[in-house]
Structure formats: structure tokens, C-alpha cells
Design a protein around this nucleic acid. Structure first.
Length: 459
RNA sequence: GAGGUUGUAGCUCAGUCGGUUAGAGCGUCUGAUUGUGGUUCAGAAGGUCGUGGGUUCGAGACCCAUCAUCCUCCCCA
């Protein structure tokens, strides 16, 4: 059997993992400075927890885990019946009771619903874990990938939207990735739907206008007509997504458009409040990332109800590298009403791909072992072991070459592993109680006392 | 779910019209060099040509199937 890994999954080597950890640590540290607390949930959820939360397309992409014991002959008939039910598109506990998590938001909502009595609200949690989607792998798309989410449950305050925007800004500034944070509000889209054929048309309309920058205005209009909108309604949609200018100009035009629709005005006000607070912060208005009102931004996940976000990297062809929004009643799906929430997500794997393309990773993160002790024989090895232990206790990452070998070979090992120093203690040095410390990059070599090795290494 | 790309040495890839024993660069190993690397030089190992059928006197190349891969659409991070 040829060794292989499942489609759309990857092994991560040391160099890759150091870069990934750099991204994860950056995000984590920013999350924590805003008071978010860590949470981890299981890789598997009950299938019924996940089904029906991500729309029809989403359901198809959920990895379902086959139940155990299906090969039991006594259960044969029942299993076949259950399988038929699955074939008809219905989930069935008899055959697949569990599924791999598809995102971190629904498990978070499930957690909040389960633990509402113990939590302090507003409950602010962050979560950085892999999720799985049975998608066709391609550029920027994996079947196993990591998300980093920060969510607030139990508050409708727009303060959270502002702070989440700031988190996006701070993280991408620290990662040195230029981005645009697009922002919109589902209430505005709801108002548009009200004007154009009713609220239940909202999904169809938003999905169509979401494609604007990809397929162009004419095809969007074709799609809307296909969904049953009248020419007049299509014209309204066109004038809506044609609204251009600065954020303020867009908001003013929207106010004219939806002056008689309270839901729309509410959405516009929410947007304005978030934008004002964000841009009033010193430094935000002039430099760095800005929030950009994007009326064609819709987001597919159907649980969003208010503000919605999406982050796009500038200068790299890549889908969104982050997204999120407000959901009024997420825990309602689990029978707990009245807990509103808002959250954002970072797509670590795409951020990685973008940073790789922009060569935005700092060199310094590739440091592993600091020093390599050459192996010059068994007696020396025994003598070196406690010296290495002493160094490690001082925080110096060091290793001893595993066997006696030509210096040539040991040098090459150090180079391959990007180890900056080698330490040579042979019989002569052993007798004298010294060590030769050589810095590979410069080639300079100094003889030092054994108990002064650490300082020779700069510790 | 639909469409396309590519599968040849550890890696990146040549391989002409179907024709003798399938090549290169990099990497690996050995030596030049018994305690001082990167350069250089000499040499060596490494292949069921993704897999299974078929066409042919003859297949790495052509045909069919299959698996894997990457990409596009759909949708998304």
C-alpha cells in the first residue's frame, strides 16, 4: 500500500508549522487583549446539531461519520432502511449519528445554549480549531482547515462590532498583510428584499448580488429575472448596488432609497454608528485599514441578521480571508431564545497562503535549536549530557549530535537545521574544562569555560 | 455535483514520428580530507514510466477504464 493522506488534507513540516503558529499566536494575543476567553469543542458534533444551519449547500458539505456496528447482521434490514432515508436527503441517526464540525459558530451557539446558566454575559470566547468541509479542494480551499473565531453572546451593543473591527485591523497590521474590511448590514438587504418581491426573496437576491464583481451586472440581472423578479424590481436592485462614493455618500443614498422602510433605516443607522466610532479612533481615520461599505456583500450563511463583515487581502488573488457578522437568535436554534450574538472569523490557511505569496513572514520565526554539541566519542557524550541539561535549564535550546561522526557531517546537520552555533568539546577541552563555541554564519570560534557557554551564546 | 490539467528517480522536470540498455539538474551516499562546514573535484546508489486492460512485430508515448493531483464553476475561509 502506498502511503497517502485524504484529499484536501495536509501534513505540516517544521518550517510551515512555525509560520502557522506565528499567525495563530498573533491572533490569539489580540483576542486576549480584548478580553476574549479560550474555548475548545469536540471535532465531532451530533449530526442534528449541524444539519440545517448552513443552508442546503452547506448541509451537503458536512462530513458525516458512519456509526459503528453497522455490519451487525441482526441490524441489516434497519440499516438498509436508514440508508435509503439518507439517500433521500434526510439525515438519519441510525446510520450517522455524528458529524465533523463545519465551522466554529454553531458549536459555540450549542455550547452557549447548553451552559447558559453558568456563563457570565456578555460571554466573549475565542476558539482556534480545525473544521472540515467536503468541498472540492482547489486554490485556497481545503477539506481540513483552521478557523479562529471571536464571538460575543448575550449583547446587542454595537460596541462589539466596533471592537471586532479593531481586532481585524490590529491582527492584519501585526501580520503585515494589507487588507480591506468590507462591511454591510443584513437589515439593509432585508429592506431591499421588502421592496423587491418580499422578504422571502432575500436569499435569492443576496446570492445574486454577491456575485456582482465576479459575473458583472448583466448576469446578475439575468439571474434575478430567473428568480422571478419583475423588470421594475430588477431596476431597483441595480440602482441599489450601483450606489457608489464614500461611505457617507453611500449611507445618504440609502436613506433616500429606504426612507419609508424602518428596517432599512435601522440597518443604515447601525452601520453609521459602527463606522463613526471606528473612524473616530485616533489613527484609524488616516492610516491603515479602513472599513468599507460594500452593498454587494451578502454572505451565504443564513443565520446573520445585522452587521456583516468580510476581509479581502489586497494584491493577492484569493477568496475572503475572514468573515463574520451579527446573529440575533443563534441559540434559538437550540431552544434558548433571546441571546443575541456577533462574531468574526479568521481563515488561517488562506492567510498563510496570502502571506507566503507576499513573503510577509519574518525570518526570525524560523529559529529552532540554538546550539549543537558535536559528538566526539562516548566518553565526551557522557560528559556533555549534564552540560546540555544545564544550558536547557537556562532556556537555551540545544541538542547533542546522536553519534560519533565526521565533523563534516555534523556541520552539515547544523546547517540543515538552521542551528546558529556549534559547540565542540573533545578530549582536549574535557581535560581543560573548556568548550569551543563556533558561530556558523561568521565562522568565528572562541574558547570558553564550560560554565560560561550560555553567555557565549548570548544568554 | 459539472468541466478541465497533470501523473516518468527523494524533489523539479526532459523524453522528437511508436523503435536498441529511459535522461538531466538538484538532493542523497562515498572518497579527495584521522578535530573544523558552506566552494571544488572524482565516483556511486536510486525507475514495475500512477494502476489495470487494449492496439502493435514493438508502448513512457496511441486507445479505454480506473485512481491520484492541481485548477475552474457552484459555494465558501
Amino acid at each position: 500500500m502506498k502511503p497517502s493522506i485524504p484529499q484536501g488534507t495536509r501534513d505540516f513540516s517544521a518550517a510551515v508549522l512555525r509560520k502557522r503558529n506565528f499567525i495563530l499566536q498573533t491572533i490569539r494575543s489580540v483576542f486576549e487583549t480584548y478580553g476574549f476567553e479560550p474555548l475548545e469543542t469536540p471535532a465531532m458534533e451530533n449530526t442534528e446539531t449541524l444539519m440545517g444551519k448552513y443552508g442546503e449547500e452547506g448541509d451537503k458539505l458536512i462530513f458525516k461519520v458512519l456509526n459503528n456496528g453497522l455490519n451487525n447482521p441482526d441490524k441489516r434490514d434497519a440499516v438498509i432502511r436508514d440508508f435509503d432515508a439518507v439517500m433521500e436527503g434526510r439525515t438519519n441517526k441510525g446510520i450517522t449519528e455524528r458529524a465533523l464540525r463545519y465551522d466554529l459558530t454553531i458549536p459555540f451557539a450549542r455550547y452557549v445554549a447548553m451552559n447558559q446558566g453558568q456563563l457570565t454575559f456578555p460571554f466573549k470566547r475565542y476558539q482556534m480549531q480545525p473544521v472540515w468541509r467536503a468541498d472540492r479542494p482547489q486554490r485556497g480551499r481545503y477539506r481540513e482547515f483552521w478557523q479562529c473565531d471571536a464571538d460575543v453572546a448575550g449583547s446587542t451593543a454595537l460596541l462589539h462590532e466596533v471592537e471586532l473591527s479593531l481586532i481585524y485591523t490590529n491582527v492584519f497590521n501585526k501580520l503585515n498583510v494589507p487588507v480591506e474590511v468590507h462591511i454591510n448590514n443584513r437589515k439593509i438587504l432585508g429592506a431591499l428584499a421588502t421592496v423587491c418581491g418580499g422578504e422571502d426573496m432575500m436569499m435569492d437576491i443576496t446570492i445574486a448580488i454577491d456575485k456582482l464583481d465576479k459575473i458583472g451586472m448583466e448576469k446578475v440581472k439575468d439571474e434575478l429575472i430567473g428568480k422571478g423578479l419583475s423588470m421594475e424590481q430588477v431596476d431597483t436592485v441595480e440602482s441599489f448596488i450601483s450606489i457608489a462614493g464614500s461611505n457617507d455618500e453611500k449611507l445618504k443614498a440609502l436613506e433616500d432609497m429606504f426612507s419609508s422602510i424602518p428596517q432599512g433605516l435601522e440597518g443604515i443607522n447601525e452601520l453609521r454608528t459602527v463606522l463613526d466610532s471606528f473612524h473616530a479612533i485616533k489613527g484609524m481615520a488616516s492610516a491603515g485599514t479602513q472599513l468599507l461599505v460594500d452593498l454587494s456583500l451578502a454572505r451565504g450563511l443564513n443565520y446573520y441578521t445585522g452587521t456583516i463583515f468580510e476581509v479581502k487581502a489586497l494584491g493577492v488573488l484569493m477568496g475572503s480571508i475572514g468573515g463574520g457578522g451579527r446573529y440575533d437568535d443563534l441559540t434559538g436554534l437550540f431552544g434558548v431564545k433571546g441571546i443575541a450574538g456577533v462574531g468574526i472569523s479568521f481563515g488561517v490557511d488562506r492567510i498563510y497562503d496570502v502571506m507566503e505569496e507576499l513573503t510577509a513572514f519574518p525570518e526570525s520565526i524560523q529559529k529552532g535549536t540554538t546550539a549543537l554539541f558535536f559528538n566526539t566519542g562516548t566518553a565526551e557524550e557522557k560528559y556533555i549530557l549534564p552540560i546540555a541539561e544545564e544550558l536547557r535549564s537556562k532556556g537555551v535550546a540545544c541538542e547533542i549530535y546522536h553519534e560519533l561522526a565526521k565533523f563534516d557531517k555534523q556541520f552539515k546537520y547544523a546547517e540543515k537545521k538552521n542551528i546558529p552555533f556549534v559547540i565542540i568539546i573533545g578530549s582536549k577541552e574535557m581535560e581543560a574544562g573548556t568548550a569551543l563555541v563556533k558561530e556558523l554564519a561568521s565562522g568565528t570560534q572562541t574558547e570558553t569555560k564550560v560554565d560560561e557557554i550560555a553567555s557565549a551564546l548570548g544568554y
